[in-house]
């Protein structure tokens, strides 16, 4: 039995619009997603903003009801047997919400331990253990409002482990953390994996997915675009090279001109203060550079390098250049 089974999942949001003439607007957040996760596997869910990642995780965590399709967690249906699922899962959504800021970390944990039906005597031992595990030893009696964002995220991890769940859903858990905090958090995730927890992780950071995940599903527009190991996904771009070009305020029409070149497979643009970093995927490698320079049509160009593709480049190709 797999820990997680997702079959043809669909979720439509309906919202009433208009004041005098009311009408219902439908938005398809998840159209058709299927995957399964083995016990003890660390599974990644990647996709651009609005691809349906958080919606999928909320359905997995019993917090949203699917419009169609079905999900089972450890053999239990998330709609019909929601309570059985809740006993076996833990979840974290990125951000600082979801804790009682005016209570101490220990009180927060005591509160949620009670809600998970934990024995008070067991909680007395488990709470200090978890605080130590997430690096909050000695800070447990402080109010959460005084915690940094990273400390709050680590407290969320402790909260979600109170009842020792078999399956964990981590939705962009490192978002907003500083580099040191994010690195510490990734270590916590790896520690959890050694405890044989089944983990589903969504993230925007490709290196994070590459370093942590056993397998990755890439979703776009609510559908599964690819599902493979990080190495397998990289093979999608093994025939390509990446030309990185630093530009300064290149207008959209020039970028569209590059996208339209016959030897260009995909282009992603990262805005970094005053400059842009163009990542051009092409089969021609270094030979493409002169033509690309010509297409930039006199724009100021800084550093230019040609390199091997990474998981991020595979991702860009799969979702059509949207990052």
């Amino acid at each position: 039995m797999n820990a997680i089974e997702v079959n043809h999942l669909k979720r439509v949001y309906r919202a009433a619009i208009g004041v005098f003439k009311r009408s219902i607007k439908e938005v398809v957040a998840v159209d058709d997603i299927s995957f399964s996760v083995e016990k003890g596997e660390l599974f990644g869910l990647l996709g651009p903003n609005g691809a349906g990642k958080t919606t999928t995780v909320k359905m997995l965590a019993t917090l949203l009801i699917p419009t169609a399709g079905n999900i089972s967690i450890m053999g239990f249906d998330v709609v019909k047997q929601a309570n059985e699922v809740r006993k076996r899962i833990g979840f974290i959504f990125g951000g600082e919400r979801g804790l009682y800021w005016r209570l101490s970390a220990e009180d927060n944990l005591r509160y949620f331990a009670s809600l998970y039906g934990a024995d008070p005597e067991v909680s007395k031992k488990r709470i200090p253990y978890l605080l130590e595990m997430v690096g909050l030893k000695g800070r447990g009696n402080e109010r959460v409002e005084g915690y940094s964002r990273g400390m709050k995220q680590r407290l969320h991890v402790a909260r979600t482990l109170l009842h020792d769940p078999e399956v964990l859903f981590l939705d962009e858990p490192t978002i907003g953390l500083d580099p040191v905090g994010a690195r510490e958090f990734r270590q916590v995730i790896l520690d959890l994996q050694t405890e044989k927890k089944t983990i589903l992780l969504t993230t925007h950071y490709m290196f994070e997915a590459d370093a942590l995940c056993d397998r990755i599903a890439v979703i776009d527009k609510g559908c599964t675009v690819a599902l493979d190991t990080p190495g397998g996904l990289k093979k999608h771009v093994s025939d390509l090279s990446i030309v990185e070009m630093e530009t300064f305020g290149a207008p959209e029409e020039v970028l569209n001109g590059i996208r339209a070149l016959p030897f260009v497979d995909a282009v992603s643009v990262e805005d970094q203060d005053q400059r842009q970093l163009l990542k051009v995927q092409t089969e021609r490698g270094a030979e493409a550079v002169p033509d690309l320079m010509a297409a930039l049509d006199g724009q100021r160009v800084g550093r230019v390098i040609v390199r091997e593709p990474t998981l991020e480049d595979a991702y860009v190709r799969l979702v059509g250049g949207k990052v």
Binding site: K58, T62, L63, I89, G95, G98, S114, Y116
Partner: peptide, 13 residues
């Protein structure tokens, strides 16, 4: 409003 409702609904109690 404080973002804790999801956490509360997601527990077995």
């Amino acid at each position: 409003w404080s973002g804790t409702l999801e956490t509360l609904v997601g527990v077995p109690t």
